[in-house]
Design a binder for these strands. Structure first.
Lengths: 254, 254
DNA sequence: TCAAAAGTGTTACGCTTACACCCATGG
DNA sequence: CCATGGGTGTAAGCGTAACACTTTTGA
């Protein structure tokens, strides 16, 4: 390792940016906030902010998440799990191209959060506006119009969003993470519609049902039933302890 | 996003640390260097160093890798691939606990590099010593003796190493990444021994052969053969263009 | 009574596994 | 000639895909 020289290291700002995903009316959506100042004033951006002086990266991400959504994040790497009234939160990747922020050298540690459908983005302590935007829309804009379009996300946030969506899409294949998009109690059909929204495909309801109920520890029946989706009453389940899905859920091609 | 205040952001040092993995005599090994100064003086650590003022994170990692090993890294995310006489390099994760370096606030963007068996760790421009250490040894020490043992890795490097090894172990399941551990031309048996060393298991040579040769685009025969492993001459292959292995290579349990 | 969603049964097919067997070389 | 590793053939078993069919509700 090159010798440290505490007096000569180049100073960086370190931020966290959040890709907060949820499923709303059959579409995968992400939380974006309107920028109130330059650069990229008036453009949409991922929520985020500076890491504080004495704060761990995951803690900063959880704090930002709570500020923006009121969610209490469940951090799998935390010593003891917080009461799980909240979202899944994990580190995604770190972005630090020298010119990604025109004002100064900023390294952003992006995090990925998965949340159940929330009532509405609360305006938050800050006065800026926020909304849930379908990710297809945002990514299509970035591809079609380029990053200079006024509808495109600020900074390199289109890339970060794209990486976050890809992570979520692949991770629900082999883990029980899709349950993070569901309320505490949910039906097999609701869980299936999550997969369908995240992957953008249709799944066979019968085979899906067998797959998830046949995997030990994935789903735990609560005993209750619901008809909130119409049709025959469906059993309610809670997410089981199993976090890995083996063999994985197969994502149909095309 | 909280408003930026360029004059008030908390300053961080940003470094890259490298988990460089290779397979040497049937064991997964990683490159460690001896620390010449406090803290953790005399302890082994992962190679790494400061990110420069105008340098991207991946570029910093590639530079450190070249300094330590002479390898020219192949960065999949680079605009144009560099001539692939070198290793696979990818970002692993970022570590930024407030007290991870006792002297100052340091955020380290860890990278994972996979390299073919190299002649020997060159002493490098720096005068410190370096060696290839079997990862089992290092991780066992961390588990058994704790991080204060004089044989344990410095800082949180045991955690970083553990995460890197886990990434490599899972990624060779569904990608052609294991070929990064092999020389440019290699046999099916050599590739199988890579899987066996990384996973610490035995694989059936016959079924392995069928699996890798039957996956289109994974291996390309060069026409040559070799008997360097003894026995019947084996066909030589180069890594094909396919980067994803579908269906994945199954890792036998225990 | 009908539409809609939840579930169960059944068959065909693909892939993995386990193992028998043959091939080509060096010592 | 025999040990060593390379490579092919084959049958059993598991898991998925596809789809026919029954169940239970609300409108």
């Amino acid at each position: 390792m090159s010798p440290y020289d505490p007096s000569a290291f180049p100073p960086f700002a370190v931020t966290v940016d959040l890709v907060v995903l949820t499923v709303r009316s059959h579409a995968l959506c992400t939380l974006v906030v309107r920028r109130g100042e330059a650069p990229f004033q008036g453009r949409w951006a991922l929520p985020g902010g500076f890491v504080r002086d004495d704060e761990d990266l995951g803690a900063a991400a959880a704090r930002e998440l709570a500020e923006e959504t009121g969610l209490c994040a469940h951090d799998p790497s935390a010593p003891q799990p917080v009461p799980d009234n909240g979202a899944h939160l994990e580190q995604l990747a770190t972005y630090g191209a020298p010119e990604r922020d025109p004002r100064m050298r900023v390294v952003s540690v992006a995090h990925l959060a998965l949340a159940p459908d929330l009532p509405a983005p609360r305006p938050g302590g800050d006065a800026h506006s926020a909304r849930w935007a379908p990710v297809e829309e945002l990514l299509d804009q970035a591809r079609a119009a380029g990053s200079d379009s006024p509808d495109a996300l600020a900074f390199d946030h289109a890339q970060i969003l794209s990486d976050g969506v890809e992570r979520a899409r692949s991770k629900i294949e082999y883990s029980s993470l899709a349950t993070a998009f569901c309320p505490p109690e949910f039906t097999v059909g609701e869980l299936r519609r999550v997969y369908e929204a995240v992957w953008g495909v249709s799944l066979d309801p019968r085979n899906f049902h067998r797959k998830v109920t046949g995997t030990p520890g994935f789903l735990v029946p609560t005993g209750g039933t619901t008809t909130r989706q119409g049709g025959r009453p469906a059993q309610l389940f809670r997410a089981g302890g199993a976090t890995l899905l083996n063999p994985p859920m197969l994502r149909p091609e095309v």
